[in-house]
Design a protein around this nucleic acid. Structure first.
Length: 203
DNA sequence: AAGAGGATGAACT
DNA sequence: GTTCATCCTCTTG
């Protein structure tokens, strides 16, 4: 049992709930006829206009942030520190700038392709732990910014394979790298699967 | 037109 | 724990 998540999943207005619901779902990319699959084990929520850590804080609308105002199900990918491509999923109806950052996945299928892209000799727990590393392992880059994950031709999509992560198995903690966001930096908007070895370093 | 800084990761010591 | 790789976006003048 394996099904692409429907638009209704992304169009909800509770980005915190969606961030938690995405745990245990499957991220799949298909580039160069290579299909890679990973189970999502760590996410972070960003929500304009009140969240100071969100690029679209106060609904700031620029060339970069305009993607976040698209309808739920759109990919928001941008370059961080000049090096890392970070993959977010836009949520909520068009006009609301909410997004979920995918921070870590557990490698599931075609791990050898991920190893190749990362230039790893053998499998290690940091293969896909961290928002910048998983995009590299999955071949995601800024070029896919703005695509619709629900589009039949999309090379990136999310599947539900019937797994449910219970609330008690989810650890909420403050987001990382957002110290500048003042009181918002304290919000527990980072979610990870409790027993997973594939999340980025614990706090 | 220019400059600062960032939702990070890896390789150091 | 520290450093640095490295470039796009936004702000300021």
């Amino acid at each position: 049992m394996s099904q692409k998540l429907p638009p209704s999943f992304y169009l909800r207005e509770d980005v915190l709930q969606i961030s938690k619901d995405l745990l245990g779902k499957y991220l799949i990319t298909n580039f160069d006829q290579k299909v890679t699959v990973g189970k999502i084990v760590e996410t972070e929520a960003y929500r304009a206009p009140d969240d100071k850590a969100c690029h679209a804080h106060l609904n700031r609308f620029t060339e970069r942030t305009k993607i976040m105002f698209e309808a739920g199900g759109t990919a928001y990918i941008y370059l961080c520190y000049g090096i890392h491509h970070l993959f977010n999923i836009v949520t909520a109806p068009k006009g609301m700038a909410h997004a979920v950052l995918i921070r870590a996945v557990e490698p599931v299928e075609n791990v050898n392709v991920m190893l190749q892209r990362r230039k790893f000799e053998k499998l290690k727990y940091n293969l896909t732990a961290g928002p910048g590393t998983l995009t590299k392992a999955f071949g995601i880059s800024k070029k896919q910014n703005g695509i619709n994950l629900l589009d039949k031709k999309s090379p990136i999509w999310i599947e539900d394979r019937g797994e449910i992560v219970l609330e008690k198995n989810i650890i909420a903690s403050p987001r990382v790298g957002v110290a500048y966001a003042e009181e918002c930096a304290l919000w527990d908007w980072r979610f990870r699967v409790k027993e997973s070895k594939w999340t980025s370093r614990a706090k």
